[in-house]
Amino acid sequence: MSRGRRVGIALGLVALVAATGATGVLPGAYADDAVTVLDRARTATVREDFAGTVQIEWLDDGGWRSARTKVTGAGGAVQVGEGARQAGGRAEDRWIAGVTGWEVGWDEPVARKSPSPATRWDLTVGTGIPVAGRATVMVTATDPKTGAPRVRAYCDKATGVMLRREVLDRQGRVVRAVGFVEVARLGGATAVPPSAPQVVERRPSARGTDPTPDTVRALPARFAAPDRVTGFVLAGRYERADGTVQLYYSDGLFGVSVFQQIGVLDPGGMPEADARVRVREAVALGYEVAGGSVLVWERDGVTRTLVSDATAADLREFAVAFDDRAADGDGLVDRVADFLFGPFGWR
């Protein structure tokens, strides 16, 4: 059977489902259905067996970049990558390939849940383009202020597995996408379970992956952690082995990590930046990489690194608001006094 015929049959099936009323596009409506599709996608990778190749694509200042890697899901575990670049997970455990073996990436429950994506975004469900030869249901998240689509998620019609996720900029252009280019066994034969590690080490590795960070109840002084920033809600705060504090924010669709370190940013040791953008009075280094958009800047002796799958413009907006909130956290005199005399204690 030709590829085109398979595409045709898949699209035909989707159209049939749409015609029976199971899907359809109604701008501004059926948000509940969209949330259900996204929730189902989150659990489908645990329920379903599959093996395939995933391509991640992102746009930086030099054009489009892409990379591919293998993905396997079986027995409730998922594993991505090959060789030295591997990671996997089951339930709330995550493991990462280190230099000498598997290491813990995460091993504790997440206390605070992310908000529903329907809180901030207009969600619609429609018929998607086939992905990796499979019929899809497409969830579109639209900015209610501008009407611009910001995320499109293509979920397998038969199993619910998310097959492709596209992030769009404020002009509605795709700037980041991750999706299967081929997938086998999905909804069919059992895949060989990934080699979930039995023994993992709780220590930093040469690669730099820390053991699971500890949840922070009291923040070190001079670190900020506002509960809400530009529609994002604080969903976790953790201290890493080297004293870096990681905050995790979510708006239900995108996540933003804020890494805070005491110290002046040394730009000479940083990779070449894709962009330099203003965050209030500071100039931040900007990067577009496979893992998302990154912004690094320093204010008053605290260096902050933001990482997100949101677009660079959204991340900059977040950074400005965060920086503003951080500056407002204490009065100027207090901050100067703290800066000069205060121990890096805990409050």
């Binding site: 899901g73 998922v78 990462i96 597995v161 998310m162 996720r165 969903a235 799958d309």
Partner: peptide, 19 residues
């Protein structure tokens, strides 16, 4: 940091696309 972000994201978002 990007790795650590991916790990944390994968706990609440789609596991495959996050990891």
């Amino acid at each position: 940091f990007t790795d650590a972000h991916a790990v944390r994201s994968s706990l609440q978002d789609d596991v495959v696309s996050s990891l």
